[in-house]
Amino acid sequence: MTEKLIYWLEELGVEDNDLVGKKCANLGELTKAGVRVPPGFALAVQAYERFLATTGAREEMQRFLETFKADPNDPKDLAKFEKASEVLREIVDSKEMPSDMADIISAHYDKLCQRTGISDVPVAVRSAGPVSRPGQYETYLWVIGQKDLMKKIIRVWSSTFNHRSMVYRAQNGLPMEFDPIGCAVIQMVDAKVSGVMFTLHPANGDVSKIVIEANWGLGESVVSGRLSPDFYVVDKQTLNIVEKRVSDKTYEYLLDPATGATDFFEVPQERRNIPCLTDEELVELAKLGLFVEKHYGKPQDTEWTISKDLPFPQNIFMVQSRPVTAKMSKKKTATDTILDMMMSRLYQL
């Protein structure tokens, strides 16, 4: 192996975006800046390419795609993409990790276990595209041990062939058989509360405010946007909490100790309608937000999590930070989308 396929987070920075993908580069940058990030390592984009080439997966997929035809803008063809996705993922998932790559990943994982002092340390295996495509690729939580780690890294790579990514690439005229991404392997935080933080108000672009959304358990429930989380606004100057909307938090995303998988669980009645963050935690998060905004020099869109196991404030971790996108303030609303569809589909207008 001539090129370096794997890096510790602290070896990386924003300039390594194309090398390891955006998420890995950002986590490296945060680590270097002194922000508390769970420790871990990153597989380079090259590792994806090398895996698909040496296992023969890329060639097999090309053969299948020669005969594939479907229109990504026709809802009726969505099923065809679903079918194709199943075939391609099966091709990738069925391959074994080449032994030279497996050796180097194992060595890094063993080192991570030593560093954290936990044997078979649970990790999150996250996708990291060089170009941000939120919600397209997959992430695996609570991965334990060498064997499962290899499998889940391959699953993350094969998620570039999931239904929604295929449709996206077809709609945007990108290659179908190839979409190189990096992959982050970081220690799993046993989360009490998680959420997102914007260092401006996403609804009106107000840069004097920090907006925090939070729910019990792992961050997936907030990031997916399907449940209504608690909503807090903190003033950047005074660090006063200027708005606090506590919602009815019906579900939380947790590790199921019985199956080892993560899943939605009903929140016990006594925790449903109370704030999941204390004022102390809110202010600490806001300070962290101000720090990363200053570091990057731009308003940030971040993800954070608070561990069950550690004392405050060492329990607060940042797991993602990226600049706020322009479309965050202005885009077609869901209501407009519905009205447009009503006109065209119900009334042919």
């Binding site: 679903e82 397209q136 929604r164 946007g225 399907r226 939605f264 869901a334 209501t335 989308t337 519905i338």
Partner: peptide, 22 residues
């Protein structure tokens, strides 16, 4: 609803959820 939403591209979920409430 969760299963259906997961099958949609992420930028299509909000309107579908809203329409389901309607």
């Amino acid at each position: 609803e969760r299963e259906l939403l997961a099958k949609l591209p992420s930028d299509q979920r909000e309107w579908f959820h809203k329409l389901t409430q309607c």
